[in-house]
């Protein structure tokens, strides 16, 4: 897992990110700090903050990798293989703890209200996305409650677990794609750059306060571990042989 990049490293790299000093000054100003406090913050050493929409999209990457794990398990189950309870539990816990217990809260608390306030067609899209969050939580709770070694011995329960993962995948693939390509870009157009930077700082603070660690990197490592267990970690296996598609001479 040497290809994993930590959030902290990304923060320090500064590429494609918003200047932290500006964000700090906005944060102070928003919170009613004194002019001197603003000056102090603005003159602090520059760090870099990931914009909030970029941050959410990185977290979508974790979600996507769990969806791929679910898909692999569904395929194996459909081929007559057994579902491994630990794999299902581990994958569902990433969704439960990080995606549903953190990422979606940021969307619901900070992104969606702004889009609702703007009105238009995005307001109804937001309603759909929120309902889908709720349905996903019900599915995840079902997986965590029933994907046990004992219950998976039953073919009927294996089928229900596979169907639940299938439903989850089917819903979240278009869900996250829509957020990445429509919802987040719209959010970015609605929020002034200084506020966006301050919100990026706030997201990073909330993650630190909730998890006390670089949870993004931890989650990437966890999902990579599941991928390795499932044998889908090595990217080269997915590179197709294309000789049959090459132009004929």
């Amino acid at each position: 897992m040497t290809d994993l990049v930590s959030r902290r490293a990304a923060l320090l790299a500064g590429g494609g990110v918003v200047g932290g000093a500006a964000a700090a000054s906005v944060g102070w100003a928003l919170t009613g700090g004194s002019a001197s406090a603003v000056t102090t913050a603005a003159s602090a050493p520059a760090t870099a903050v990931i914009p909030p929409d970029d941050d959410l999209m990185r977290e979508h990457g974790v979600l996507k990798r769990v969806l791929l794990c679910y898909r692999e398990m569904i395929t194996r189950s459909g081929d007559g293989g057994l579902l491994n309870a630990a794999h299902v539990q581990d994958a569902a816990l990433i969704i439960h703890d990080y995606i549903e217990g953190f990422h979606e809260g940021l969307e619901e608390g900070f992104v969606f209200p702004r889009l609702r306030q703007a009105g238009g067609s995005l307001a109804s899209t937001v309603d759909t996305l929120i309902v889908q969050h709720a349905r996903g939580r019900v599915i995840t709770q079902f997986l965590l409650s029933h994907a046990t070694a004992g219950q998976l011995a039953s073919p009927g329960m294996r089928g229900r677990i596979a169907a639940a993962m299938q439903s989850f995948d089917r819903m979240y693939e278009p869900h996250e794609a829509r957020e990445d390509t429509v919802v987040f870009p719209a959010f970015r157009t609605l929020v002034p750059p200084a506020e966006l930077a301050a919100l990026g700082t706030h997201f990073a603070d909330l993650e630190q306060q909730q998890f006390h660690t670089d949870e993004f990197t931890a989650m990437v490592n966890r999902v990579a571990g599941i991928e390795q267990e499932l044998g889908i970690y090595d990217l080269t296996q997915f590179t197709p042989v294309v000789t049959q598609y090459e132009p004929s001479e």
Partner: peptide, 27 residues
């Protein structure tokens, strides 16, 4: 095995609801 994240607040008062409201109009 199941992790239950405890969500005790550590938000600084300065970044409380009012500030968030100002940021997002959606506290």
């Amino acid at each position: 095995m199941r992790k239950r994240a405890r969500l005790r607040s550590a938000l600084p008062p300065a970044l409380g609801c009012a500030a968030v409201l100002a940021l997002t109009a959606g506290c």
